[in-house]
Simulated assay, not measured.
Amino acid sequence: MNSHSIMAVPSVFAAFDEDGDGKVSVSELQRCMEATLGEDVSEEEAAAVLVAVDADGDGLLNQEEFSRLIARAGAQEEDDADVKRRCLREAFGMYASSSADDTITPASLRRTLSRLGSHELGVEECRAMICRFDLDGDGKLSFEEFRVMMMA
């Protein structure tokens, strides 16, 4: 957890601790998770999250236990981001013209699409596909341009 996150924990904890008793209950956790995630969270799901970090076993989260929950959530987000980046890098490598060049050219895009069984596209059609996401105008896609395209 970075220093900004550590500083934010007391205010986030206070927001979750709706009744101000210094503890976060299952129902408080459930309501705040729903507000934060923007989707329904069952009482059972909230209880499972609470139990996972409830070190003293009182069925409530104090600020220290809540801090551990926030740290776990942050670590999970980082892990997810790393996995997505590795998968994107692997996909990018399939299309790249060579490992030394590390770009997707119209010719390398055409070659890979042909290997994947896509209907035959001409180099000009591949050039047009690349052009939409070629942010620096060099006629090829870098990994970052490919990442932007895949996230669009």
Results as ranks from 00 to 15, higher is better:
61 L>S: 03
14 A>G: 02
138 D>I: 07
149 M>Q: 03
122 G>Y: 11
151 M>R: 13
106 P>T: 08
10 P>N: 06
132 R>D: 13
15 A>H: 03
58 D>N: 15
88 L>A: 05
61 L>W: 11
120 E>V: 13
58 D>T: 08
75 A>K: 14
115 R>Q: 13
150 M>S: 12
76 Q>D: 04
130 I>A: 09
107 A>M: 11
37 L>V: 01
118 S>W: 09
6 I>Y: 04
15 A>P: 02
108 S>E: 04
115 R>S: 12
144 E>P: 05
51 V>M: 14
61 L>E: 01
17 D>T: 06
150 M>E: 05
45 E>R: 13
15 A>C: 11
27 S>I: 00
10 P>Q: 05
150 M>A: 08
123 V>A: 00
101 D>S: 13
25 S>G: 10
44 E>R: 10
69 L>F: 10
75 A>Q: 09
19 D>G: 00
145 E>D: 09
19 D>K: 01
6 I>M: 03
38 G>Q: 06
111 R>E: 07
33 M>R: 01
82 D>L: 15
129 M>S: 07
29 L>S: 05
28 E>V: 00
99 S>L: 15
100 A>G: 07
128 A>W: 03
20 G>S: 14
48 A>K: 15
104 I>W: 02
103 T>N: 03
97 S>M: 13
33 M>S: 00
129 M>W: 06
1 M>C: 02
117 G>P: 05
64 E>K: 14
38 G>W: 01
28 E>K: 00
132 R>C: 10
73 A>F: 11
5 S>N: 04
104 I>R: 02
44 E>P: 01
90 E>F: 15
107 A>V: 15
94 M>A: 11
54 D>R: 07
50 L>Y: 05
51 V>H: 14
17 D>H: 09
